[in-house]
Design a protein around this nucleic acid. Sequence first.
DNA 1: CAGCTTGGCTAGCGGTGCTAGAATCACGGT
DNA 2: ACCGTGATTCTAGCACCGCTAGCCAAGCTG
Lengths: 193, 193
Amino acid sequence: MSIQKRRERERAERERLIVTAARELAESEGWNAVTTRRLAAEIEYSQPVLYSHFSGKDAIMAAVAVEGFAELAAELCRARTEAAAPEDPARALASVAAAYADFAERRPALYDAMFTQAVDLPFASADAPDALRRGFDELREALRPVVDEDNLDVLTETFWSGLHGLLTLMRDGRLRREQHDLRLAVLIRRFST
Amino acid sequence: MSIQKRRERERAERERLIVTAARELAESEGWNAVTTRRLAAEIEYSQPVLYSHFSGKDAIMAAVAVEGFAELAAELCRARTEAAAPEDPARALASVAAAYADFAERRPALYDAMFTQAVDLPFASADAPDALRRGFDELREALRPVVDEDNLDVLTETFWSGLHGLLTLMRDGRLRREQHDLRLAVLIRRFST
DNA sequence: CAGCTTGGCTAGCGGTGCTAGAATCACGGT
DNA sequence: ACCGTGATTCTAGCACCGCTAGCCAAGCTG
């Protein structure tokens, strides 16, 4: 009876262990270094146990991504509400955009799992991860006071795409890093009023 | 003497063969299906000949990407100059943006090689592929008449990032495809006047 | 014609994600 | 107290990957 509980608890703990190990490995050495063998060694189990928790490597990456969504949403929320928000909406938007960029820059591997890989997650549908939706909402609420637009969702998606493009292109060396702040300022300015 | 010439010519032809085979395979089945074995079988040579032409799989993808840059530049140029350009710059910009989006949608694998993989190409430097620079120039010239901005290069980079983000996020299912035209219109509108 | 150089091939290395089947452990019933 | 049973973990291996060493057969040169 209670033994069953303990089993389940230990199993859940091991699952967490897998996800955090995958994330740390990815963040320190990139996703190419995250192999099932390496991951198994890291958690001190054999390879097949990974497959008793996840259907495959993609599912592990997806789990890491979900973790990232929550953190991103939290950081965006903090940026929006702590940045002297109500009285200065323009500043709040700049703060949120900077927080987004900072997140992508600080955790490139995590950002990658969230937005350029792990396609088997539901995104633009009703059962998208809750944290993902919260992150999107933060962007939208930051934009709401500064724009005059009938379709705020579409506008937010477009602004988000701009941020995403800026960051992925810069990360892959397509854009000069030195001018990042200028580009970010242009994007924000273009999406204000 | 002439034999040497023939040898070089045949070798160049075979190199072309490799690149087009890689491209066709990628476009029809995705880059995951493009393995060195598969590619070798396709061109009816053994694997090692690939390595006498290219340093590795990445270099082959880079060659495919360069091909893509030329085509994209040509399509953008056509869109800009054929779309009743001088008298209606706003329409010309919309046409160029639509051509860019169309290219990415029509040849996702090619677009991928150009802008989300093959990082060993020089981009934001003096010796970037010429075709890449030409494509960027088309975007800039399409933007020039409709914006009032001191730093046109930075603005173009930002607009380009917006397009890129829109397309990559949609391709991976992050954005609803039905609203693509609305988002594109928002982006263009935000980067006009 | 002999010798050498060039170029393509076969075979193989170390790695990948993933899985079948053996082995081990903890449990419940007699 | 013991033994069968079921779950759980491991060993070993599959088919594939990018890439390369070394052989072998052509063809050019003296």
